[in-house]
Design a protein around this nucleic acid. Structure first.
Length: 598
RNA sequence: GGGCGCGUAGCCUAGUCUGGAUAGGGCACCGGGUUCCUAACCCGGCGGUCGAGGGUUCAAAUCCCUCCGCGCCCGCCA
């Protein structure tokens, strides 16, 4: 718990003051009983208590060992010497722990006032500090997004939202790679009449087109067959290679970028269904046009470990940068004078550094070595800054193995969303007959999107995931719709209570049930959760929090009446309003639509 | 071979950074709950050698070492 003092972004976290106060009193108690424990050390050793009804706990093992005293005895002495008074209700020894319980009235009053007072800002900090760039997704504009790629988008978008909430001045960027071989292949093919396509490629798309389908599916469909065909046919491969050289020389036909843009727009439309949008797009080919790639080439050629090979290619001997053996020879300019992807990525990062104080890249784990190589090249040209990386592991295909467009094992994001939508629609119709068709569709789309986002973000990014349809389409248990449902339920209570908007007067002394206090304690943890997700990149903790809060609320809902609870009615309404608000705030960071009714 | 990551009940997963009190959830399965604020819900039950072994420590899922298994990367591709 020692991070509070080093935090620079002031999220309003009630625990900061409480931990400070409890630590201060523990230090006084320690002095009283004659053991060495400073306030700072106490704050660092304090943890959230797992004992029923307690808030903070201090394990005394370490102190006891130093004092050569049985831990239980020391805990008892410390608890007895703990200075009483607000906001602490009591300090009691349990085993080797001193458990501190805050006055529930103080806890409830502070938290409810904070949540209801700040509303949508609860858990958010004032935007401050240096500007941050978060680059994510950056999928090649060559065809539809599959579920594996969308993990990048969901992790990246969630991280962006969290970083923004934590006070970052965030700009999101999508790096459009229009200079790669893949994009070249797609344009090369579509530039020719269908009759001129290699027979197997034509056959692979025949009869596959669906009326009204998105252009990323339509334009991307021949890619796998073309890719396979090129492996076997040298002449065609050479024709494509020729086109690649044209693009690399900066003389790509206008149709190339137009087609890439057309496909990209279709991909972005799918991401928009998930609530994912980008602030800026940086086209790789623009880095070539504006001369920044050439500048990087010059700097690299003049770098300390640069060397030229017989055929004219240039490389950096990066052994001194700790790259794995067999990977220390980094070619940055081909024999034909053309730059490589990593070289252009250096140019891209210099551009980012020129505008942003902090640069974050969300990358698949297969880019780990690329990232280290990029770092080495930045060092070679004397650039002191580095991006920070957030890596995520693959989502494997249902049958196992990587999702591959070429191998045909990819599950398209669009198909997943469509299937989720149709199932969600059936669920809505099952329980509602009072909604217009438009309302049903709107709810179903939000549920589908929420289910997909939650399903992917809920797992720690560094864990590999095997995609399974039945799991991805689950609307129960630990799922997006579960959280959305709790929000809708809270909204319904407030609607029925004609309390859909503030003010929410309450009397903290009336909220004393364990269910109520557990809810308030959970509410109090939201700001810390946001701060942690933003600084660690562990965005899955946001999903965990949202689920836990929804779960707690469901228990409260079943255990205690709200609207028919007599004198405590108004106070419980305020509690429900605070829960609804915090559910909304957490759903917002997860990019999931909060539905007032479903 | 080298580098990086992962290994927690039948399946999925939190906790590992920062070592602490009986390892939290979910799915599936079994048994209950709706004249009452939305049952996409709740309550109870079943289910764990935290991959294996060693070490550090008062204390290890967590830190260190060795090994095993799985994935990815190691291109003048991106």
């Amino acid at each position: 718990m020692g991070t509070s003092s080093t935090r620079t972004t002031p999220i309003v976290d009630p625990w900061e003051a409480w931990i400070g106060e409890v630590a201060s009193r523990l230090a006084r108690a320690a002095a009283e009983v004659g053991v060495p424990l400073g306030e700072t050390a106490a704050a660092e050793q304090l943890e959230f208590s797992s004992a029923e009804g307690a808030d903070l706990a201090l394990p005394v093992h370490r102190l006891a060992a130093a004092a050569k005293e049985p831990p239980e005895a020391l805990a008892a002495r410390l608890a007895a010497a703990f200075p009483p008074g607000e906001p602490v209700l009591q300090a009691r020894a349990e085993g080797a722990y001193v458990n501190v319980t805050l006055d529930p009235g103080e806890l409830v009053a502070t938290i409810l006032s904070l949540v209801l007072g700040r509303g949508g800002e609860y858990g958010r900090a004032e935007a401050a500090g240096e500007p941050v760039c978060i680059e994510h997704t950056s999928s090649n504009p060559t065809g539809p997004l599959h579920v594996g790629r969308v993990r990048n988008a969901i992790v990246g978008d969630t991280l962006s939202r969290a970083a923004r909430a934590a006070g970052g001045r965030v700009t999101t960027q999508y790096y459009v790679d229009d200079m790669g071989r893949q994009a070249a292949m797609v344009t090369w093919l579509w530039q020719q009449p269908r009759e001129a396509w290699p027979e197997p490629v034509r056959a692979s798309v025949e009869g596959q087109e669906r009326p009204g389908e998105k252009v990323d599916h339509y334009r991307g469909r021949p890619y796998p067959a073309l890719s396979a065909y090129l492996k076997e046919h040298r002449e065609t491969a050479e024709a494509v290679a020729e086109f690649v050289r044209l693009i690399e020389s900066g003389a790509a036909p206008a149709a190339h970028r137009a087609l890439a843009g057309e496909i990209l727009d279709a991909m972005l439309a799918s991401l928009a269904r998930l609530g994912i949008r980008f602030d800026e797009f940086v086209w790789e080919s623009d880095l070539l046009k504006d001369g920044s790639v050439e500048k990087v080439l010059e700097r690299l050629r003049a770098a300390p470990h640069a060397l030229q090979e017989e055929n004219g290619a240039w490389a950096i001997d990066a052994e001194s940068y700790g790259l794995p053996k067999d990977s220390t020879h980094v070619v940055f300019q081909r024999g034909n004078g053309v730059s490589l992807y990593v070289t252009r990525d250096v140019a891209y990062h210099l551009l980012k550094f020129s505008r942003f104080g902090r640069v974050v890249d969300v990358l698949g784990q297969d880019h780990q070595l690329h990232a280290r190589t990029l770092d080495a090249l930045l060092a070679e040209i004397g650039e002191g800054r580095r991006p920070s990386y957030v890596f995520y592991q693959d989502i494997h295909a249902p049958g196992g193995g990587r999702m591959s467009t070429r191998g045909g094992s990819a599950v398209w994001l669009d198909d997943l969303l469509d299937e989720a939508f149709s199932r969600a629609r059936a669920e809505v119709l099952k329980r509602r007959d009072d909604l217009s068709a438009e309302e049903v569709d709107r709810i179903a789309e939000a549920v589908a999107s929420g289910a997909v986002r939650f399903h992917i973000v809920r797992v720690a990014p560094d864990k590999p995931v095997r995609f399974r349809w039945e799991d991805a389409l689950s609307f129960e248990g630990r799922s997006g719709p579960f959280v959305q449902y709790a929000y809708a339920r809270a909204s319904s209570v407030l609607r029925k209570g004609e309390a859909d908007s503030p003010p929410y007067p309450f009397d903290a002394k009336l909220l004393t049930d364990p269910e109520e206090l557990a809810l308030v304690r959970l509410l109090s943890r939201w700001p810390r959760t946001v701060a942690y997700a933003a600084r660690s990149g562990h965005v899955h903790t946001l999903a965990g929090y949202a689920h836990d809060l929804a779960d707690r609320f469901n228990r409260f809902y079943h255990a205690l009446p709200v609207l028919t609870s007599g004198p405590s009615r108004e106070s419980r309404i305020a509690l429900v309003a605070a829960v609804r608000q915090t559910l909304a705030n957490s759903l917002d960071l997860l990019g999931i639509v909060a539905l007032p009714t479903m």
